[in-house]
C-alpha cells in the first residue's frame, strides 16, 4: 500500500534503464551491401584519381599529377564549361516550359488533369536509348521536322538538326521536364490562394499576378526542381552520346572514353571526381542563391 497523496515527486520514479540501441539486425545485410558495393568502390575510385595510375593499374603512390594534367588542359576546361553551360541551358528551358505546364495542372481538374499528368510522365516510360532513337527519327535528315519544313516549302534542303549541341539540348529538355514540373506543382499548390485572390480584387492583371505574386512565392519549391534538373543534366550520358554524334563531347562522354577506349583509368577517375565535386558545389551554390531569393521575396510580401 502506498500513500499517493501528498507531494508527487518525479524523483520517486527511477530513470529508465538505457539499453544500448545498436543497429537492428534486419538492417545489417543492406548496410553491409552498401558498404561493400558502394562505399568501397567509391573509395577506390577516389584513390585512383590521386595515385599514379598507368592505364588500368596502379603503379605508384600518391600523386596529383592526374589532376594537374586535367586542370591545366585547355580542352578540359572547354569541356567543363560546355557541360556546365548546356546543363544550365537545359535547366532554364525546363523552367520556362515547365512553369506553364505546372501552372496549368494546378488550374485544371478531373480527367483532363489526369491526361496531362500522364503526358508529363510519358518520357519516364521509355529508356534512354529509346528516347534518343525517337529524337533521331524526329530531327534526322529524313525525320519529322525536316519533312514538315520541306513539304511546306519553308526550306529547300533538309536542315541538319541532329548530332550537334541543339539536338542534345532538346533531347535533355524532354527527358528532364517531368523532374521540373512535378516539384513545381507542389510549389504552386502551396501558395495560399488568398494572395492571388487579393491581387485579383485589387485589379491586377493576370500577367502581373503571375509574375509578382505567384512566382516569388514558389521560389523555394522551384529550387528543388532546379537543382534536380541541373544535377541530372550535368551528368547525363546516354542522350549526350547518342544525340551528340561523333564530334560532340561532354564530361560524361570524356569519362566514358577514358575508361573504355583510351584505358586511362586515372584520368577517368579524376574527371569523375571533378564531375561529382563540381555538381555538388553547384547544387550548394544554387541552394544558397535560392535561400537569398526566398528572403528577398519574403521582404516583398
Amino acid at each position: 500500500m502506498t500513500a499517493a497523496g501528498g507531494a508527487l515527486d518525479a524523483s520517486l520514479i527511477e530513470p529508465e534503464r538505457r539499453r544500448f540501441r545498436a543497429i537492428p539486425a534486419p538492417l545489417l545485410p543492406a548496410t553491409i551491401m552498401m558498404i561493400i558495393l558502394l562505399v568501397a568502390p567509391l573509395a577506390v575510385l577516389l584513390s585512383y584519381s590521386v595515385l599514379e595510375v598507368n592505364g588500368a593499374a596502379v603503379e605508384g603512390g600518391i600523386s596529383f599529377a592526374t589532376f594537374g594534367r586535367l586542370l591545366s588542359s585547355r580542352y578540359f576546361w572547354f569541356l567543363f564549361g560546355r557541360t556546365f553551360a548546356i546543363a544550365l541551358g537545359v535547366t532554364l528551358l525546363c523552367l520556362v516550359i515547365g512553369y506553364p505546364i505546372a501552372f496549368l495542372i494546378t488550374r485544371v481538374h478531373g480527367w483532363l488533369r489526369a491526361v496531362i499528368l500522364v503526358a508529363v510522365a510519358a518520357p519516364l516510360l521509355t529508356s534512354g536509348i529509346i528516347r534518343a532513337f525517337a529524337w533521331i527519327v524526329i530531327l534526322g535528315k529524313q525525320g519529322l521536322v525536316n519533312f514538315a519544313l520541306t513539304s511546306t516549302g519553308l526550306v529547300d534542303e533538309p536542315v541538319s538538326l541532329l548530332f550537334q549541341v541543339r539536338s542534345v539540348v532538346i533531347g535533355m529538355t524532354q527527358l528532364l521536364l517531368p523532374f521540373m514540373v512535378i516539384p513545381l506543382i507542389s510549389a504552386i499548390q502551396d501558395v495560399p490562394a488568398e494572395t492571388t485572390h487579393a491581387a485579383r480584387n485589387l485589379g491586377a492583371s493576370e500577367f502581373r499576378i503571375f509574375w509578382r505574386v505567384l512566382i516569388p512565392q514558389t521560389v523555394p519549391g522551384a529550387a528543388a526542381g532546379i537543382t534536380l534538373v541541373f544535377a541530372l543534366g550535368y551528368s547525363e550520358f546516354t542522350l549526350a552520346m547518342l544525340l551528340g554524334g561523333g564530334s560532340f563531347n561532354y564530361l560524361s562522354i570524356y569519362i566514358y572514353d577514358s575508361m573504355t577506349s583510351l584505358l586511362d583509368w586515372g584520368r577517368g577517375a579524376a574527371a569523375a571526381a571533378l564531375l561529382l565535386a563540381s555538381s555538388l558545389l553547384t547544387v550548394v551554390i544554387l541552394n544558397l542563391v535560392v535561400r537569398r531569393l526566398t528572403r528577398w521575396s519574403r521582404q516583398i510580401n
Binding site: I101, L104, L125, F210
Partner: peptide, 28 residues
C-alpha cells in the same frame, strides 16, 4: 485584353511543352 494575351502565351508554351513530352513516344 492583356489577360487574354497572357493566357494565350501561357497555354501556348504549355502546349509546346506537352507536345514535346508526348510526341517522341508516339513517333516511335
Amino acid at each position: 485584353a492583356a489577360d487574354a494575351g497572357w493566357r494565350i502565351i501561357l497555354h501556348g508554351v504549355a502546349a509546346i511543352g506537352l507536345i514535346m513530352l508526348v510526341v517522341p513516344t508516339l513517333i516511335i
